[in-house]
Design a protein around this nucleic acid. Structure first.
Lengths: 210, 210
DNA sequence: TGCTTTCGCTACGACCCGTAGCGTAATACC
DNA sequence: GGTATTACGCTACGGGTCGTAGCGAAAGCA
């Protein structure tokens, strides 16, 4: 969002309502049409806005969809459920809930695909979507260390690497389950996933769930 | 690939060389242009083939790219490295090697994004790409059970669910690391990942790597 | 009340899409 | 070897989307 004009700026300010309408229209178009059939002209019509207005605020389809999808992740929270396992399950279920929505499914993967050839777009995704998720991992880890469920970090670099690894494992598994396998990441799946993540594969296979 | 004409068919058969040229041209176009700027007319020109020929064999951009990318996964093998951990590391490194190639990066994610709104496309991806990967998980699991590294499966349904879970965790983590975090899934990362997958997070955090 | 910027609207050339039509080339069947 | 049948290359076309330019009107700031 490059939002409203700077404070000390003369002239007619940009309509904040238009921003909201455009982003909402973009999500609606993603639901109805998906990524490939979504056109900026159609989004403008849905938002009740001229196409030129849309182009004044966003460079193109990629940037617009990133911002529209990013808002979906605003609701992510880290509730304190008492244990690391329960915390993980709670966050993963929230994440899965967002990815279950069609506007997130078709939009997110498409912009990630585009970002493989556009560094600026990747940075935009990182700042507005990925970092927001990673903060939850960091907070959850700190809380688990305070509880004594995880050992305190000895080396800082080592700790950062581990956080990145866990993040890729958690987010990657949910995304793959939802979009590639096209199966719901429901409570049962999340439970099994958390068990493997915390206890490991060999142990998890030996102990029946529950 | 809907490839060459059925055996007892009259008339001029379809050129197998054209199939190969078109798929190779598609990968080249993915490297040069990425998904969104790739056009079928350009692919036809690169392949030295008329645009109409291309349309006679593939329904559209999605199907063509799926087939072009699928060939990249032909090289996946499950070498016997002596232990479950080593086997996992070997396969994951191969998978990461494929995803490091630009034609896989930009193509695979894009068609997955499109498949969220196209069941036939998702089935095509499953049959030609995903199942090929999943077989390696199944083979590796069987081998580990024969070695005694994993407990034999008691319940069949339970076992199938676990395989699906592991598959999503492995493939998802590598894809997320490579495409979203945009960091290489190198030997060090794969080693850490395998350790967490097998031993779990709590244990892995307690033991320094090596 | 001016000044400045945004807004809606229209129009435009450029590009790509997917298909039709045609004459030609290559094979299977008889 | 002749013939039917299919694939191929080529050209051309209407239709849609792109991203931009130009205009007058609207909406805030000084």
């Amino acid at each position: 969002m490059q939002s409203s004009s700077p404070a000390g700026r003369a002239g007619r300010p940009r309509s904040a309502a238009a921003d909201a309408a455009i982003l909402a229209a973009t999500r609606a178009a993603l639901i109805d049409l998906g990524w490939s059939r979504l056109t900026l002209g159609d989004v403008a019509t849905r938002a009740g806005v001229a196409k030129t207005t849309l182009y004044r605020r966003w460079a193109g389809k990629n940037e617009l969809v990133v911002d529209a999808v990013a808002e979906l992740f605003d609701e992510l929270r880290l509730p304190d459920r008492g244990s690391l396992a329960a915390d993980i399950e709670g966050v993963v279920l929230q994440f899965a809930g967002i990815l279950a929505r069609p506007e997130a499914r078709s939009g997110l993967m498409a912009v990630i695909a585009e970002s493989t050839r556009d560094d600026a777009l990747r940075e935009r995704i990182r700042a507005s979507i990925v970092d927001r998720q990673k903060r939850l991992i960091l907070a959850g880890r700190a809380r688990a260390q305070a509880r004594g469920e995880l050992p305190p970090e000895s080396d800082a670099g080592e700790a950062a690497r581990t956080v990145d690894l866990i993040f890729d494992m958690v987010a990657g598994a949910v995304v793959h389950r939802t979009l590639v396998s096209a199966e719901p990441a429901d409570e049962e799946w999340v439970h099994d996933f958390t068990r493997v993540l915390l206890s490991g594969l060999a142990v998890a296979g030996a102990y029946p769930p529950g």
